[in-house]
Each structure stands twice: as C-alpha cells, then as structure tokens.
Amino acid sequence: MSTVLRDAWKTLVPDLDSRHGPLPPLLLALTVVTGLVDAFSYLVLGHVFVANMTGNVVFMAFSLAGAEGFSLMASLVSLASFVVGAVVGGRSANRFPHHRARLLLAATALEGVLVLAAYLSSELTADPPSTAARYLLIVLLGLAMGGQNAAARRLGVPDLTTTVLTQTITGIAADGRLAGGTASKTGTRALSAIAMFLGALAGGLLIHNSDPALPLLIAGLTLAAMVAVVAFQVRSTRPWIA
C-alpha cells in the first residue's frame, strides 16, 4: 500500500526536475475533461462517444445489427471528426518536436476553443438539440478529443493516455502483487481511472440535475486554466521540456 500511495503522490505532486515534470497532473486534468465531455456526448447527444473510439466502433456494429438507440451516422461522424482532430493535433505536434510545453500549450488552447464553442452552441440550441445541432456538437467535440489524444500520445507519459483505460486497468491487475509484480505504477494508473470516473460522474450529475451543457463549460474552463499554467512553462529549461 505504501508503494501505491507513494506513486500516487509523486504523480499528483511531481518533481519539476524529473523526466516528465508537471505533465502527470496536467494529463490527469485532461482525463477529467474526457470524462466530462464523453458524459455529455453519451447522455445528451445519444449513444455516441467523442473520445472513446472503441465504444463508437462497437456502437456502429450494434446499429448495423439493428439494435435500437444507436445511430450509425452519429458514430461515423464522431469517428471521422476524431480522426481529423488527431491529424491536426499530429501536425501541431510536429511543429514542436523538441518542446513539450509548446506542444501542450497549442493542443490545450485549440481544444479549449473547440469545447467552449460546443458549450455556446449547446446553450443556443433547443433541448433536446435538433439533428443539425447534434451533429455540429459531435464534430466540435470529436475534433477536440482527437487533438487531445494526438498531443497526449506525443507527450509520451507512461500510463496517462487521457482516454484509454483498458490497458491501464489491465496494468493494475497484471503488474500488481497478486500477479507477482511490484505494483510500481499502480498509484498512477489508479489515479487515471479515478480521474476519468470523477469527470464522468460530475458530468452525469450536472446533466441530470442542472444545465446539460455545464459539463462542457467546466471542461472548457479547465482547459483555459491549463493554458494559463503551461504558458508560464514555455520558457522553462527544465529537463521535461525536451
């Protein structure tokens, strides 16, 4: 237990001169954003994810099989938007191949604009949204999540992918003490799962008890705060930058 807690603490309060510096808590914040955004997309826009593409592939299969409540077109639009966002995010990452702070700043700034645009669009449309408004929101959020994933992938912080939890949870079990491992990364992996859970929980509660668009506002403000934090690190020469 002490190993897990120590690992979790180092993830939340990292040494700024370590290999990844402040990136772990920042990526945890992005994981919370993912939970908020996917809660909105699934609960408000219908059975569609904008960050979890594994789910969308399965939903497309369900739709083709004739299952009710799933839209093949919505899942395809989400998948296509995500891919375009990942391409844009990849091109942005290639502009800063040796400067992770500038990469993260560009990625979070663009993502924040897209998420806040989705929030404003949601506020200006009827509840439930029309078909056109629904697809606009899927496109905006799919682009944002694709860009986020591309940036997180290029940043390369182990066990903090911001969206994919299957491998994370597998690592907790397969590398844990019950499996004969050292559980050396269990704290970090558990925090990633908890961050996703808390984001989705907060999103679900807000949607069912308040304004359905509030998860997007909170996600957008979180991204704005991240932009402010990362902007102060752009001129840093600490080891994690490169």
Rank of each mutant, 00 (worst) to 15 (best):
L5P: 10
L105W: 14
L141W: 07
V4E: 12
L23Q: 15
L72A: 13
L26R: 12
T131L: 14
L136P: 13
G89D: 08
V88E: 11
N52T: 02
L28A: 11
Y119C: 05
T108G: 07
V32Y: 03
A65M: 11
V50M: 12
R6P: 04
P97A: 11
D127S: 15
L116G: 09
R153E: 02
I218T: 02
T222V: 14
S236P: 13
L217Q: 10
A242F: 11
G142I: 03
G220P: 07
P25A: 01
V33W: 08
T163N: 09
L216S: 02
I194K: 08
A8E: 02
P215W: 01
V157G: 13
F82C: 08
A29P: 10
T161Q: 12
F82L: 15
A39D: 00
L155V: 07
A193D: 02
S122W: 07
L72H: 12
L103A: 06
V84D: 10
T131C: 06
P239A: 03
T188C: 12
A86Y: 00
A193P: 06
G187K: 06
T11K: 03
F40I: 07
F62Q: 08
S81E: 06
A190D: 00
D175N: 11
G199M: 06
P212S: 02
L28K: 13
V57W: 09
V83S: 07
W9P: 07
T222C: 13
T54E: 08
V164Y: 13
A193R: 06
T166Y: 07
V83D: 01
A152M: 08
S121L: 14
L120M: 13
T3M: 09
D211A: 10
R238H: 14
D15L: 10
S122V: 01
Y119T: 01
L64D: 00
R95M: 13
E111A: 02
S192Q: 15
T54A: 12
L205R: 14
P14L: 04
A213C: 14
E123F: 02
L221N: 05
V157T: 15
W9A: 13
L104R: 10
N149F: 01
L27E: 08
A224T: 13
W9Y: 14
T186H: 12
S81G: 13
L201I: 05
R19V: 08
A93E: 09
M60F: 05
L43F: 10
G146C: 05
T163Q: 07
F40E: 10
K185E: 09
G176E: 09
L137T: 00
T131F: 10
F59M: 08
A144F: 06
S2D: 14
W9F: 11
V229W: 11
T3R: 11
T222D: 11
A173P: 06
I172P: 06
G203V: 03
V57A: 15
T188G: 00
V37A: 02
L26H: 12
T166I: 09
S122T: 12
R95N: 10
V229P: 09
